[in-house]
Design a protein around this nucleic acid. Structure first.
Lengths: 180, 180
DNA sequence: GTAAATATGTTATAACATAACATTTCAATT
DNA sequence: AATTGAAATGTTATGTTATAACATATTTAC
């Protein structure tokens, strides 16, 4: 059984380095499990996952790429007229408060949290080629940061770790062999 | 002799944890040494530290707090009329290319680089109380990040590490004892 | 059913950033 | 010192991201 935080895969074997979902992964399952988790957490906490909030969360989960607030707004279909910015920003604020999404500071964009409920600082690997972002939870990074800050007499409350680079799917040396 | 990257201090002894300058530090020296370093580096590289660029760099160095582009713009005094945004953004781009300043993604703001010439990824400690930011260069953090990324098959090109919290100067337990 | 709290609608504007093209300045050469 | 090509700056307009302030509607607790 794969740990729950892994991306849902079809039949292919998953290497240890598939933090980034491959192109064959069953993304519908990513979405549905994220939505179910959100429903459960909100119920448990007695907070309201309203239509708008649910819709925004689902839009955020449409891909593994961080998405901007105005992109979400464009895809938010109210009954009649277009929604206004505060609508989406309020939903984003709620979802962040509940730990259901993260904000990527270096992109001014938002991405679904892979492990809501766990209170954690997200660490992100952001591919400059395909644009996908994977959330890392690496205790050694946290520990190193904690130590470095402590040596400076600084207490960290909110770390931002966003690592831009190239993911395994997009590295030239892997591209030729990847559906092997 | 203190290492060159330390903040210039007056007569008081510096503890190992003064990554953040204390209130008595001789800030004029921070500015003048940063400016001199910039002049030297630009000369060495045959790039032009023009009036505007020099002025923007000096404004960035007016404090140890990250400063926004429009704040800089407000303080940029051309001969006659107010400068326009592209003026300051172009100067900021130049200064970043030369490694003389860093951009703080989580604040949309800019801060002087404490060690230009060294090609390094900045790691920042940002105090939510006083607003000051200190640049850390911690190899263990870099190493932990490198390892974490590698395990995910990801190659990091541009890390962003911004740690919001409270600096030693602003921690309540130190406030009472700080002028000793 | 009423009140209080929560959520959403609406209007306006703030804050941050860049595209595109015109003009000026610089600095190397003739 | 005139020519010229590159670099820098000026200028106008607009794009992108985000929030303030106040009105209305919906939900929940009593």
């Amino acid at each position: 059984m794969a740990p729950s935080y892994r991306y849902t895969e079809t039949s292919k074997s998953s290497s240890a380095s598939t933090m980034f979902p491959d192109h064959e992964h069953d993304h519908g399952k990513c979405v549905s499990s994220a939505m179910q988790r959100a429903e459960d957490l909100c119920a448990e906490r007695s907070v309201r996952l309203t239509d708008i909030r649910r819709q925004v969360l689902e839009l955020v989960w449409q891909s593994h790429n961080p998405v901007g607030a105005y992109d979400l707004l464009d895809n938010l279909h109210g009954i009649g007229k277009r929604a206004q910015p505060p609508t989406v920003y309020r939903a984003l604020e709620f979802l962040m408060d509940q730990g259901l999404i993260h904000r990527i500071e270096s992109l001014n964009a938002y991405i679904g949290c892979r492990d809501p409920g766990e209170d954690h600082a997200g660490q992100f690997l952001i591919c400059r080629d395909c644009g996908a972002a994977a959330e890392l939870v690496d205790k050694r990074i946290d520990a190193a940061i904690g130590q470095g800050a402590k040596a400076a007499g600084f207490s960290v409350e909110h770390p931002t770790v966003e690592l831009e680079g190239v993911c395994a799917n997009c590295r030239p040396e892997h591209k030729g062999t990847k559906h092997g």
